[in-house]
Simulated assay, not measured.
Amino acid sequence: MDPVTADVPRMKTIREYVEARILSLDDLKGALQLAMRLEFATIPPYLCAQWSVQNDPDRTEGVLHRIVSQEMGHFALAGNLLAAVGGRPSIAHADFLPSYPLSELPGGIPQELPVDLKPLRREQLAVFMQIEYPEFPPIALQAELPPATIGAFYDTIIATFQAVKPDIDQDAHAVELPATNPIRTVADAIDTIDRIKSEGEGTQGSPEEPSGDGGGHAHYYLFKELYVQKRLVKVGEKWSFSGSPVTLPDVYDFGSSQARPNPSAEFNRTLKQLLIDLETCWTNGAPPNVAAMFRLQMIGRDLIKRGIRPEFRWDDGSA
């Protein structure tokens, strides 16, 4: 039987969380569940771009793999934060999966360029830069109101941990992967949120990650290197896209399929099981199903090579 979710109150927008400034414990849990949705929403588009790579003279797939791995880590870390403050990550249901194309990201962040599942081409890189843009000009507020950005959303979560100092469950289950860790203290929580922010957009005045897997540029700048086809380099005290040229790879073209039986059925079943298994990591401490992650990748790559777009939909049993 599929996991059944209890009645869940309407999810607040990023604007609503930011306006509150300091969150109640219940709102902190809601904000962390939203953070899980927000981080997950980027993964299918990035994966489809990665899987579409064919000839790859400048090892672009490795760049995409690193970004996807970090986004998966951010998603898992948001879940670990939620479990640590007594919440229950809820991902094993159809409503958790975004329906692409997205005109706004979870939390009500409008996207001028729709976020869709497409091959890695220059126009898709523009979408990815939009998602990761520092300070997030595609904001969640009307133009006449002060901006409520994703950065401000994470800052609100940090401020809540600093002010409220919620009890941290030392026995909370966590998804433990090479790039993730359990949350044992309020300081752990704050460091984790800072990491999620900086790996996506860098730090103020610098494109570099301050920590993590050996440094390197944050996601926005990695995508922009591919978009402008020039490496980002530091000349004196200034950064500029004036380094060595970057050649975009050849890619497999793909699109949605109306064939029956559904060629994405096995992919959707594997995704569903993966989400079910991940949720149990937080509920009973089961280890992550790494084999299912590799299986999803194998099936997704095969679909794309055949010109078929992986659906990233919850399997409802129909073919």
Rank of each mutant, 00 (worst) to 15 (best):
C48G: 03
A49S: 06
Q50C: 00
W51A: 13
W51Q: 05
N55I: 15
N55E: 12
D58I: 01
R59G: 14
T60Y: 12
E61A: 15
E61W: 13
G62F: 09
G62L: 10
G62W: 11
V63R: 14
R66G: 05
I67H: 00
V68C: 03
S69T: 14
Q70K: 04
E71F: 08
E71P: 07
M72G: 05
H74F: 10
H74G: 12
A78F: 15
G79K: 11
L82N: 07
L82G: 09
A83S: 13
A84S: 15
P89R: 00
I91W: 04
I91H: 10
A92G: 08
H93Y: 13
D95G: 15
D95Q: 14
F96S: 08
F96Q: 06
L97M: 09
S99E: 14
P101C: 14
S103F: 14
S103V: 14
S103G: 15
S103C: 03
E104F: 01
L105Q: 03
L105W: 07
P106I: 01
P106C: 03
P106G: 02
G107N: 09
G107F: 14
G108C: 10
I109R: 11
P110I: 10
Q111C: 15
E112N: 09
L113Q: 10
P114E: 11
P114T: 05
P114M: 12
V115P: 04
D116P: 10
D116R: 13
L117N: 14
K118L: 10
P119H: 00
P119W: 05
P119K: 01
P119L: 01
L120G: 03
L120W: 03
L120N: 05
L120K: 01
R121C: 02
R121A: 02
R121Q: 05
R122C: 07
R122V: 08
E123Y: 04
E123C: 08
Q124Y: 08
Q124F: 01
L125V: 00
A126F: 04
V127I: 10
M129W: 00
Q130W: 00
